[in-house]
Simulated scan of single mutants.
Amino acid sequence: MVHIRQLDPTASPLDYFGYELRRKREEAGLTLKQLGSVLFCSGSLIGQIETTLKVPTRDFAERLDAALVTDGYFSRLVGLVLRSQLPTWFQPYADMEAKATYISTYQCQLVYGLLQTKAYAAALLSVDHPDRVDEMVAARMERQRVLEREQPPALWVVLDESVLYRMVGDRDVMRGQLAHLLSFRNNQSVHVQVLPYSVGAHTGMMGSFTLLRFEEHPDLYYCESYDQGHMTANPQVIRERSVGYARLQAGALSPEDSADLMARVMEERYGAEVA
Rank of each mutant, 00 (worst) to 15 (best):
L35F: 10
L35R: 05
T70Q: 03
L68R: 07
T31C: 08
R22V: 01
P9K: 07
E26D: 01
Q34H: 04
R23G: 00
L68T: 09
L45E: 14
L68P: 08
S42K: 10
T31G: 11
P9E: 02
L45V: 15
K33W: 08
R23F: 00
R63S: 12
E62N: 10
L32A: 12
F40I: 13
G43T: 11
P9A: 04
A28E: 02
T51C: 13
E27K: 09
Y19F: 15
T51S: 15
D15S: 15
F60Q: 10
Y19P: 00
V69E: 14
R63F: 04
K33C: 03
A66Q: 11
F40S: 13
D59I: 07
C41N: 11
F40Y: 11
G72E: 04
P56K: 07
L35G: 08
C41G: 07
K33G: 09
E62C: 06
L21P: 01
T51L: 06
Y19Q: 03
R25P: 01
R58S: 12
T52S: 14
E20H: 01
V38H: 09
T52K: 12
A66R: 13
E26P: 00
A61L: 09
Q34R: 14
K24W: 02
T10W: 01
K54F: 04
K33V: 15
G29S: 04
A61Q: 09
R63L: 10
I46V: 15
R22W: 00
K24E: 10
D71E: 15
D59T: 12
E27T: 08
S12M: 10
A11H: 13
L68M: 10
S42T: 15
L35K: 03
